[in-house]
């Protein structure tokens, strides 16, 4: 396992983005608040820039206008010649690539933290590309240690041979912060307060790193995405059932072969027929219905993360 290069310099160009999905209200409301009053995002070594990522979808209180912005930061979309008929999000992705990127270039932002909500019962979770992202893993540990009573989990969401297309992929490093459950279009004070505290802690971590703090090696668990699982459907493609009550709200809990996963409208149960235990996440997420995903299956990994310090020599490879 090779680790991604750890930053050798302080992270000075940092952005916090909200409203990437226009109806995920915690990030929308925080971004709008910080655009008016950015003081909260300042640290001695840097000032994070607030960005409202999808203003048209935010104004309409929709996930997106033409296509999912958080799947649009791919080489193909970003480099194709601009055309007046381009979907709104393709144009907006290019603007954000100018602002925060260009992707995979030396001029890109050092870190982007992208704020999301889910309707699934996922609590606090960080979505990171791979376990090799040592900086992100230490950021996770910092957040977890601040509030040990509330689990913070890491989802590794890089599918093989696929560009993620995520907004934070335009920066040199980044992650998505996902809080749930919260319905689309609703702003809950508990999640709002929690997201605000987590962003503050993430910026504090970057400050600590910038001032030369060394972070020791540690062991951790994360959930690596294996595949999506669609709803049962009729011949016409409509839903024929929904998530089983015994699976609903059980994100991150083990799902064993033979356990019920769907309840058909006709009353029967559909059982999980896989051969091994998996850990479902994003169970019954509203934004995934049109992607044909009832939940994602993940596997639980345990691995060690090398020590982190701006001044330290290159970290030793993990397992």
């Amino acid at each position: 396992m090779c680790s991604l290069p750890v930053p050798r310099e302080p992270l000075r160009r940092v952005a916090v983005t909200g409203g990437t999905h226009g109806n995920e209200m915690s990030g929308v409301c925080l971004a709008q608040h910080w655009l008016r009053a950015p003081g909260e995002l300042q640290r001695p070594s840097f000032s994070a820039m607030p960005v409202l990522a999808n203003p048209a979808a935010t104004a309409a209180c929709r996930r997106y206008m033409d296509r999912d912005l958080n799947r649009t930061f791919t080489n193909t979309f970003l480099t194709a010649r601009a055309h007046p008929d381009d979907p709104y999000e393709v144009t907006r992705a290019r603007e954000l690539n100018q602002l925060l990127g260009p992707m995979a270039s030396g001029g890109a932002f050092d870190f982007v933290l992208d704020l999301h909500n889910t309707t699934a019962n996922m609590g606090t979770c960080l979505i990171v590309d791979t376990a090799h992202n040592v900086f992100a893993m230490h950021l996770y540990r910092h957040l977890q240690m601040l509030s040990p009573e509330l689990p913070c989990r890491v989802i590794l969401y890089k599918l093989p041979k696929e560009e993620s297309g995520s907004l934070n992929s335009v920066a040199k490093n980044g992650m998505a912060l996902e809080l749930g459950p919260q319905p689309q279009g609703v702003l809950r004070a508990d999640l709002f307060t929690r997201m605000r505290a987590l962003v503050a802690a993430a910026l504090d971590f970057i400050q600590l790193f910038n001032q030369g703090t060394a972070f020791p090696a540690f062991e951790m668990e994360a959930y690596r995405v294996l595949r999506g699982m669609d709803f049962p459907r009729t011949e016409a493609g409509d839903l024929a059932g929904t998530v089983h009550p015994q699976l609903q709200d059980r994100d991150f809990e083990p799902l064993r072969p033979g356990a019920p996963i769907f309840q058909m409208f006709s009353g029967e149960d559909v059982l999980y027929e896989g051969e091994s235990t998996v850990y479902p996440v994003f169970i019954n997420e509203a934004g995934y219905y049109d992607k044909g995903i009832a939940f994602l299956q993940t596997e639980k990994l345990t691995f060690s993360v090398p020590a982190l310090s701006m001044l330290a020599p290159a970290p030793t490879p993990g397992p």
Binding site: T119, P181, Q182, P183, Q184, G185, V186, L239, T242, V243, H244, P245, Q248, Q263, N284, E285, A286, G287, Y289
Partner: peptide, 14 residues
């Protein structure tokens, strides 16, 4: 309720 818009919960449906 409670059920978010755009999702179908089995408990609410029942």
């Amino acid at each position: 309720g409670p059920q978010p818009q755009g999702i179908l919960r089995a408990d609410i449906l029942n």
